[in-house]
Design a protein around this nucleic acid. Structure first.
Lengths: 240, 240
DNA sequence: GCAAAAGTGTTGAAGGTACACCCATGT
DNA sequence: ACATGGGTGTACCTTCAACACTTTTGC
């Protein structure tokens, strides 16, 4: 985030007055990436090419235009910088400590997003180098206060996944119960009893079997499920 | 919030450029107010004296200065506009819809605060008319999107009070279990079994009897309890 | 004594964990 | 046949809502 170089509209960066804080958005994009026979919870980082923190990894993001909504700005930067159009995007927290940007006082409205594995074409024209990093193998110092932002996003995700039905956002439209359980494993890091997991998630009514089965496995073919919730129903309370 | 008239530092309001959004803070201050033998959950509103929405009631707040932290700005506006110095202040959400201020694109970082009943001296010199309103008797249209902000703050408070020990913030340092139960009643609106409430809150270990008792009541004198948690322990996860 | 609030004990329903067990498929 | 993951049944434990009951004060 917080790059002054590329953006869609002409932005008079240097003409910005010094006496008022400016506003940007940063997005923690979560996804499951396959590493050595294991799905790992990962976040997408982009490498900065301009100072400050040139060459370091940072969260994607950028300015908020005049007349532009915050979520709208977040989606725009994701689209132009990573090519992603996440279905789940939620505001996380607003970081406004004056020292977080060495150049000037910039406020960052942080969001977090969940994207499916099959949406992972990282843009037709990614403007800058982008990489998925496993959340427990992040590059050592990140730009700005992005370590704190990611930590908090992880905390929120781990909390929310245990009471809200958002895990589906990391999977394709149809999935097996084992896949869904592995999502919880990747996020929470704790093993879950397959038996009780099935009962719990079936009783919640948020998923329903499609009737189809997975062929080709080495063992008994599992059922395919799909989520019954519309995207609107995923948001538990926050406003527009 | 969002008044352009009075503030501490000289603020070149009219020189602010049109092409970037500006940033303010708004605070939903919760308190228990006694109305007809009943404690009611109330929020503090101030009357606007300048357009837009002149004469209407609004949340206290104002600009964020350059080099000033967000929470710091929230506390400053509370201090100067209402005289309150709340012990509990937590960021709520950031509202950035372009249309929320008819004059210009202003982003509001909303906070919510809990204040005790004995801190209710509403400032030695309140710069503007301020009043406590019961949350279910708010004045009809509030300025800006303040209705939405209060609704969301209420939602958050009701959620949080059921899993975090923050109800004490609305009571004096020592209190009876009945008083504490009435806080939950005022916030949640649901009656609670005194028996089970006692057990639950005692088992949690967050309160401890002081040994003292309340004299002068018409019946058996209850014990006085006090909270064992330091203010730091009240925050469950969010960053600095 | 009586009313009212403080405080205790017990029961039963609900939910969750652990685990033994059966089912279906490829090799 | 058998290994492996899919799927079912059940017993146990913890938590919590409900409610009857006892205690302590002022009048």
């Amino acid at each position: 985030m917080l790059d002054t170089s590329t953006d869609n509209a002409p932005e008079p960066v240097m003409q910005r007055p010094e006496n008022w804080p400016t506003v940007g958005v940063s997005v923690v994009i979560f996804s499951l990436q396959l590493t050595e026979e294991e799905r790992r919870l990962s976040v997408l980082l982009v490498r900065r090419d301009a100072p400050p923190f040139a060459g370091m990894w940072a969260l994607p993001g950028g300015w908020v235009h005049y007349g532009e909504g915050l979520e709208q700005a977040a989606r725009r930067h994701l689209r132009t910088k990573t090519g992603l159009r996440p279905t789940y995007l939620e505001q996380l927290y607003t970081f406004g400590q004056p020292g977080r940007d060495p150049r000037e006082h910039r406020i960052a409205v942080a969001y977090y997003a969940l994207v499916r594995n099959d949406e992972h074409e990282l843009s037709a024209a990614p403007e800058r180098e982008a990489r998925w990093y496993s959340v427990d193998q992040l590059p050592a110092p990140l730009a700005f206060d992005n370590d704190a932002i990611i930590s908090y996003a992880l905390w929120r995700l781990r909390n929310k996944v245990s009471y809200a039905a958002i895990a589906f956002q990391l999977l394709p439209p149809t999935f097996t119960l084992t896949q869904l359980r592995e999502v919880y494993l990747a996020i929470l890091g704790t093993k879950i009893d397959p038996t009780n997991f099935r009962r719990k998630v079936e009783a919640s009514g948020t998923i329903v079997p499609t009737g189809a089965r997975v062929e080709g496995g080495a063992h008994r073919p599992p059922q395919l499920y799909r989520c019954t919730l519309s995207p609107d129903q995923l948001f538990t309370g926050p406003p527009s």
